[in-house]
Design a protein around this nucleic acid. Sequence first.
DNA 1: CCCCGAGCCTGGAGGC
DNA 2: TGCCTCCAGGCTCGGG
Length: 286
Amino acid sequence: MVPELPEVETVRQGLARWVIGRRIDRVEVLHPRAVRRHVPGGAHFADVLAGRTVLDVRRRGKYLWLPLDSGDAVIGHLGMSGQLLLQPATAPDEAHLRVRFRFADDGPELRFVDQRTFGGLSVSEGGATLPSEIAHIARDPLDPEFSDTQFGAALRRRRTEVKRALLDQTLISGVGNIYADEALWRAGLHGARPTDALTGPAARRLLGHVRDVLGEAITAGGTSFDALYVDVNGESGYFDRSLNVYGREGQPCRRCAAPIRREAFMNRSSYSCPRCQPRPRAAAHT
DNA sequence: CCCCGAGCCTGGAGGC
DNA sequence: TGCCTCCAGGCTCGGG
């Protein structure tokens, strides 16, 4: 399961519960690619974190960051397959364990596990408030400071297709391929619709659906953090997505029963209902 | 500045 | 059964 905003938020809450206030004793980098965004390298990454205390766990879009008592912050992105696990030191190493954080209290370790290493960790110097490395990421629609008006205007200024725009993290964050398809289905819009042809009300409706889809997923996912296990791969079974179109090619649309279609999109797939979400007739761009 | 698309990565699934 | 190809897709970066 690919982590999108709801999964990352679930991880954030789990991490907050287990690591805030703890002092890092030692960090081990087991795969250089997992810290490739940390330009000074893995040894520096480990050095600068030793002895630091975690003050908080915050999120911007799909990025997490952990402000430290040094004023720096650990930035994390789960990519496609990343997990942040809390494990007793006695637990055997995971097959794709990339980074291990041991704490001074000898409590559970924090482990970054990532099969495909699209994700990674880095330290942002002075980034406790908001790391400059992720300052370009827009707020997500569940953020109280997200501006619906600004989003609507920016969306309609774009000269692109609406699904592309939803996936643009500098415009709106936290939306990935899955929830983009779900929101477009709810809105009755085909992803190839040109953004500059959307009316103001249509843009507002779409945003409302994006917000609903994300909010419902968080509610569904944030059931229990009692287990000493913060998992984004759904293996613990607590994160059960109920999807209306994504991955349902050929199955009946839950609104009109037409078979859901799958179309190529950016070397991946888009799912939509051929009846509820008709393709735009032609390119509206000149 | 804005938009687009290539490339990064590995394991599971499915075809033959 | 084993080898091969395809597929999953968020993000960065270079080109137009």
